[in-house]
Design a protein around this nucleic acid. Structure first.
Length: 506
RNA sequence: GGCGCAUUCGUCUAGCGGCCUAGGACGCAUCCCUCUCAAGGAUGAGAUCACGGGUUCGAAUCCCGUAUGCGCUACCA
């Protein structure tokens, strides 16, 4: 519980449905969500589907899945409704039209009959003269005969905002310091496109006002158009919400520009598939551009809700650092996740690798104990869930499937003859060990540990090396005793015997 | 090109005029632990606080300029 008396904020995440959400956008959504929760307010999801050309089927589900996976829920939205529904812009067209007409009536907007071809020509001419590009505002003074002609030619007009030609506009922002812009540098932006759909500039203002949004939290990409938005609010006589322009996320060190999918995973779903935990991704993302103090690195969602503060968001863009994400994820896996939780979350990855069946992924049943034991062997070493199968696949495969160079069995030992003796001693020992001792990792270790000195080895490492390779087929493997227990005594002895045969056959 | 924003170790950051000979974290190096690999523990290298001017008794902290980075410059968001 927080004792601060912030007034309840209404924030929103308003993505356009153009595919799988990008971690940059999602981080902004996280900020908005946390601020709403911190202040005891509301967080809404609104779909901004005004660009009919960029719609991607299924996007709304992708967006909701990404948010839900991260543990972010919303109080109002397209699926659950709310007091200001609908929450999909394409279903709110009359509202935008009404506001646009009001602006025209009040002299703050006008119809524009210019064709795309003409706009392009104007821009090219301006650029050739090294002037700032942009619309020449021709239709502000277009004559009636010209209008009639355009209409007769079948031109569907757009509606443009009539930017004041003089003066300055000031944008106040909670992250970036106040910025001031000469009105003359701002374009007469299109408010309603010729297809009748509004642009972002109009639609988000109409909706934020209608939905009583108190904090417009978005990325700094919007900062240059914020003065335009301020002017539209002024023309409408509406109260401005607080502006919060969060920094963008940059590519990893060495790569220029903002985080791009050219060389990096950018979708939340990709990180899920790569084996990152939602709580780790969230923790990492929130710390990219925000900090609580000079030392806290790990936060639960509840702690974030308690401690998040917009005022502590950095104004500077941060680079996406995969090493730090890996470290964060590893910490969650190694130290925060319970063994049961770890095993449960590993199921899809084991299934993907073909180590268990799809049916077992859904319901492992009796096999769960084995899976949990196997996964438990690598819980403290794995950085991502997707690494698990590659670390423990030998425990799922039959002994005969292990393939490894015979020489690996020897390691630092003096030669095959000596290693055969080691394997025989271990087999002999394991055959006699009482079951209770076999099942007890420490007892099993202590028993085996008595073997190396009688064999004349200079250290215990020489004793443990051959069985490691024999059981795993690798020189790097999970804990030896752990593997023995998971495999069971019979399978263990079988693998040791196979290794012995391999050496003898050499 | 124009407009805007930003600028503390390679990276993420603490710092809001004296506590800073700048603290923490990732990464890196060395050592310890040790049945391999990890994890863990310890230590270390690494930032003249982008640069140049001011303001002030005093500046990483305030102001100005330059440089650099980032963003925008669509009937996309």
């Amino acid at each position: 519980m927080t004792t601060d008396n912030f007034s309840p904020a209404r924030t929103r995440f308003a993505p356009s449905p153009t595919g799988n959400p990008h971690v940059g956008n999602i981080r902004t959504a996280i900020f908005a969500f946390l601020w709403a929760r911190r202040t005891g307010g509301h967080f809404l999801l609104r779909i901004e589907d005004t660009d009919r050309n960029r719609l991607v089927e299924g996007s709304i589900e992708y967006i909701k899945d990404s948010l839900r996976w991260l543990g972010i829920d919303w109080d109002e939205g397209p699926d659950i409704g709310g007091p200001y529904e609908p929450y999909i812009q394409s279903e709110r067209l009359p509202l935008y039209k009404e506001v646009a007409e009001q602006l025209i009536k009040d002299g703050h907007a006008y119809y524009c009959y210019c064709t795309p071809a003409r706009l392009e020509a104007v821009n090219k001419a301006k650029q050739a003269q090294k002037l700032p590009s942009g619309y020449d505002r021709r239709c502000r003074t277009i004559s009636q005969p010209e209008i009639d002609e355009a209409l007769a030619a079948g031109i569907k007009p757009t509606v443009r905002f009539k930017v004041p030609l003089e003066g300055k506009t000031v944008v106040h922002d909670l992250i970036v310091k106040t910025s001031t812009v000469e009105n003359s540098t701002i374009q007469d932006a299109v408010l309603i496109k010729s297809d009748g759909f509004p642009t972002y500039h109009l639609a988000h203002i109409v909706d934020d006002h209608a939905m009583k949004i108190t904090h417009v939290i978005r990325t700094q990409e919007w900062l240059p158009s914020a003065p335009l938005h301020v002017m539209i609010y002024q023309a409408l006589g509406w109260k401005m919400p607080e502006m919060v322009h969060a920094p963008v996320i940059l590519n990893p060190p060495g790569q220029k520009g903002k985080l791009s999918k050219r060389d990096n995973a950018v979708a939340v779903s990709q990180y899920r598939e790569l084996g990152y935990l939602p709580e780790a991704l969230l923790n990492f993302l929130v710390l990219l551009g925000w900090s609580y103090d000079d030392k806290t690195e790990f936060f639960t969602l509840a702690e974030l809700i308690e401690k998040f503060d917009i005022a502590r968001i950095q104004p500077t863009p941060a680079r996406f650092n995969l090493d730090k994400l890996d470290w964060t994820n590893a910490h969650y896996i190694n130290h925060i996740l319970s063994p049961e939780d770890f095993a449960r979350r590993s199921l899809p990855f084991l299934g993907e690798a073909g180590l268990i069946t799809p049916a077992e992924v859904a319901e492992p049943g009796e096999k769960l104990a084995f899976i949990a034991a196997a996964c438990g062997l690598v819980k403290d070493k794995v950085k991502t869930l997707s690494e698990i199968p590659g670390e423990i696949d030998m425990l799922f495969k039959p002994a005969e499937a292990l393939e490894y160079p015979t020489n690996d069995l020897i390691g630092k030992n003096t030669g095959p003859v000596e290693v055969v003796k080691i394997l025989e001693a271990i087999i002999d020992h394991l055959e006699k060990v009482p079951e209770a001792q076999y099942q007890d990792r420490d007892a099993l270790y202590q028993g085996l540990d008595t073997l190396w000195q009688p064999l004349g080895l200079v250290n215990r490492g020489l004793l443990f090396w051959p069985p490691r390779v024999a059981l795993s087929g690798r020189t790097k493997s999970p804990d030896l005793m752990g593997m023995m227990i998971v495999l069971g005594r019979a399978e263990t002895i079988k693998r040791l015997e196979l290794a012995r045969q391999k050496l003898l056959a050499q």
